[in-house]
Design a protein around this nucleic acid. Sequence first.
DNA 1: CCTCAAACTGAATGATCCTTCATATAATGG
DNA 2: CCATTATATGAAGGATCATTCAGTTTGAGG
Lengths: 186, 186
Amino acid sequence: MTDGPHKLTTTRVAERAGVSVGTMYQYFPHKQALIYALNERYLDALAGRIEATCAAHHGAPVAKGVEALIDVYWQAKTERPDLTRALYRSVADMDNRALIEAFATRTDFATTAMLSSATDASFADVNSINRTLVTVIFGAVRNAFERNLAGPVAEDVRAQLVVMCRAYLEASLSRPPARTSLSSTK
Amino acid sequence: MTDGPHKLTTTRVAERAGVSVGTMYQYFPHKQALIYALNERYLDALAGRIEATCAAHHGAPVAKGVEALIDVYWQAKTERPDLTRALYRSVADMDNRALIEAFATRTDFATTAMLSSATDASFADVNSINRTLVTVIFGAVRNAFERNLAGPVAEDVRAQLVVMCRAYLEASLSRPPARTSLSSTK
DNA sequence: CCTCAAACTGAATGATCCTTCATATAATGG
DNA sequence: CCATTATATGAAGGATCATTCAGTTTGAGG
């Protein structure tokens, strides 16, 4: 299903799935429903991975958790570039509000839980911080992906993204375990 | 040109431009060329605004500069949501490597210059930091935009994005004006 | 081996949209 | 005012798909 050439046509998807167009229409009423299902499956798997990662880092230092989060997402988007691209594109052509919403909810829940459970830090407004973190990570990864950054450069961006998120968290501690040197809004 | 309903068809664009399809084909050989031109114009204007912002913050504290950068970009993407959406979408349907490339080059140049010129900070690897900053900002803004965050929430994300970038810069100073409490990779 | 239903097939249909071109309108200059 | 050229128009041509459906294959039960 890691489609190659270009458009996600019904015939092409059917072929790739090893059936004829007609058969496909026995399982999905529209093309939209089909694409929706593809995205649903993808997002469901992705959410699953994220949840697993977050669960695995309950109680771990936030720094570790965020890095792990960045890694799964990065990995997920990069491991099958064609699929990623095809889905990103397909999403532009239809109303996917519900899917994105569901994904965001699951994700937010998982990441918030991870952040809150960290024993080495506590944050005043976890929701705000979490929302920002997720928005930044997902956005940055997508942007990096779409810019087709070459290997080492991509790697650098990924690493720096980790640094950035950590710096943000450290700056946002409500009861800093160490002293921060943050110049408030100088 | 702030297109409303959905697809960017040749007829629709022509209408919006106040001419007939035929006339349009006297100025653009393909639809592709047309869309390309639209994007070119948009990106050119955007790059211009970014350059202006950066120029206006030469020698200013980095914190100010980054905030300004975030603001222009955010503003540019939100002020005409339909246009933004239409262009994001159109970009998925064609080879726009060259445009993105050109935009990235101009942008990188401007932001790097701004960062380097700051008198209150100096960075070891400006290129890496700049690349990361730009990727994160552009990506996060897009992501926030596409999530259709409600007014106050959006505002919060924007503000937090500023906080985050500042924290990152502070953590990346090569000769810290104050002491950093950064736990290296604990 | 036969029957019937379920599942499959892919050519035909119709919609949408890019592109062309025969024709009309405007502008220029003599 | 006419001739000539530049510019504009939008219906028609042709491609590409999504979607349908008449007909075929498959498989279970008898």
